[in-house]
Design a protein around this nucleic acid. Structure first.
Lengths: 357, 357
DNA sequence: CACCGGGATGGAAACGTTTCCATTGACAAC
DNA sequence: GTTGTCAATGGAAACGTTTCCATCCCGGTG
């Protein structure tokens, strides 16, 4: 074997330079398509590169240029289809531009969030896309500022000079609640994430506003804020349906929650929509294919990922110090067959049912 | 401002050394918990580190140590819940061990797969976890070998010295098909991925074996191999149900395919299970909550991610040159209510229906 | 008292690039 | 023929670490 190699068996720019009888600087210029290199030299170097299977070491490049062509993506749980869709959409934009996406999950726990920020402080990605759960006491904001890189927040608002892309979840919950109020429901439950995170807070706000519009009081026990876990929705639905005066309608305030609601409703024998009306925030196969199909407040999930990736790219090509941008995506109500006027008599015994054609 | 900083505003090991009046080597020893450093010195250095908010530059560390503490994760589509679950499971193991996961999607396209391998040749992760779609003509295998890093294949088999973790999809399809054959079905369709990828090929094989066991012939037109896209399942189901002699049962050979099958069946007015029996490979909320609930061949999706991550860790701590390991996870049939004996008369007009209690 | 062993530390090389600066020719303009 | 310009190239510094080697000093031992 006549070619030298690094310890890991890959040839370096020096090996190429030696074999092509040029200086390393020249090889670098060839690799980076610098204009001032003689065509003959270029060809000779390129041949050697091909022969040796030389690949520039991105680590060394980053070391020198202080650019990693890497974007960090931080969410509570990457298994969650919501975040997976967003990641997919973002990476579909970033990857063709030469950026590589580095993921990290936080489980929504503050300690892990800080850990992850530490990791990214050391790894130096060019930008960060994140959805943080723990509220801000200043520590988080300081850590973010220390990062000194473009940051885009998803579905969250934190005071600071950061771009943000989010959905109008308040609007979604508002429309959903109005829809139910319009049908005559009064005991409407809302199951959603903790009020500490924006989607939860926003949905409570939309729900409350809908009641306020009708001058109706909100019953606090019908507000079940906790998590986006379907099991949470299952437990809360069970608990709600066990009340002496169970709600006549439930708003499932999160993409994954509908499954829990449906499971519990099935177990309690609450027929939909005759005994219980259901609206889901977030459209899914399940909502479309359940029987009856479920009315939803839907929005374009992937658009969050697209907008986040575009915001990152905008910052990365120059607009580093522009004022923080804020994108809010709308939510739209899709009426299907899971809602009906409330049953006048004891809920659960009501048999009137709206049948689809 | 009296502390020097790098161009990106972060302090370096030199800044710390200067401020603590020690050599950079000593700071390095403090950071890496090297035993031979005087407690007093250590404390002094640590104080300076805290004061300056110094974070070691991972790029420089990697440059020097040739270790990135990074694992590449390559799949056809990271939006796909299947891969998202696997990624989540893997990262839940890797992240606490200090490894960061770098993702890339290939769209199942060969050109992109080669691109992605090129990216990882340059970025030098410590290991790779991947699901490649394009068959091997030797080019791919050579590219992988050139990478000179531990590689774990998911749900794929490629000849070479690589660990592999996969599911016994043949077994799943076999059990599903036997279940339907046992109920008396003969015209059973299988919709699944292209035979070029392992899960598709395996399911065809399991299906075929089930027919062979009963000495029954397989009708080729009932085998619809193409993709894991629900729209594909929708089109194929529509096409199948439009036949003069439509199948009396369908096996949906992929986690995402059930939605397409159900949608098409609904549109064609094919009642389940009276007119059409359905089995899905892969359990989901939809399968559990559809009415009727769908019989499935299920396996532990996350286990693939866990096994892959563990295989990576095993290689990374020493067992670099052990013989390639091969893990096969079993599949199990869960009988629900989507299957019934086939209707004797013209399918689609059959009204007999098995009702669950 | 000379010597030795060893812990603590400083100094410098090396990792693989990019980029600045200097040098060399070639060629045009005077 | 001298001078100036410009393209092509070589050489070396620098990026921020880790780690090897040498040095220093301390205390114990013979």
């Amino acid at each position: 074997m006549r070619r030298r190699r690094g310890a890991d068996g890959k040839s370096t720019i020096k090996d190429v330079a030696r074999a092509a009888k040029v200086a390393v600087g020249t090889v670098s210029r060839v690799v980076n398509a610098h204009p001032s290199v003689d065509p003959a030299t270029r060809q000779r170097v390129e041949r050697v590169i091909a022969r040796l299977g030389y690949e520039p070491n991105a680590i060394a490049q980053s070391m020198r240029t202080r650019v990693t062509r890497t974007v960090g993506f931080v969410v509570p749980d990457i298994s969650n289809p919501n975040w997976a869709w967003i990641l997919g959409a973002a990476s579909r934009i970033l990857q063709p531009r030469g950026y590589t996406v580095v993921v990290a999950s936080t489980g929504g726990e503050r300690a892990l969030e800080l850990d992850v920020l530490g990791v990214f402080a050391r790894r130096r990605p060019d930008a960060l896309i994140l959805a943080l759960d723990s509220g801000d006491d200043g520590v988080l904001a300081r850590a973010l500022r220390q990062l000194r890189m473009p940051i885009v927040m998803m579905e969250r608002e934190l005071p600071g000079p950061w771009d943000a892309v989010m959905t109008d979840h308040a609007g979604g919950a508002y429309t959903a609640t109005r829809h139910l109020l319009g049908l005559g429901h009064r005991r409407i439950a809302l199951i959603t994430a903790s009020e500490r995170v924006r989607p939860g807070a926003q949905r409570v706000q939309g729900y409350t506003r809908a009641f306020a519009d009708e001058q109706l009081p909100v019953e606090p026990d019908l507000l079940r804020c906790g998590s986006f876990d379907p099991d949470f929705a299952f437990r809360e639905t069970s608990s709600l349906l066990s009340r002496r005066d169970p709600p006549t309608a439930i708003v499932a305030g999160g993409i994954q929650l509908l499954a829990g609601v449906l499971r519990a409703a099935g177990l309690h024998g609450a027929a939909i929509p005759s005994a219980l009306s259901v609206v889901s925030c977030g459209d899914t196969d399940l909502a479309q294919l359940a029987s009856p199909p479920v009315t939803v407040a839907r929005w374009d999930v992937k658009a969050i990922g697209v907008a986040a990736a575009e915001a990152v790219l905008r910052r990365l090509r120059g607009a580093a110090s522009a004022a923080p941008a804020r994108v809010v995506l709308e939510s739209e109500l899709v009426v299907r067959e899971s809602c009906a006027p409330p049953c006048a008599r004891r809920p659960g015994r009501c048999q009137a049912r709206i049948q689809s054609p």
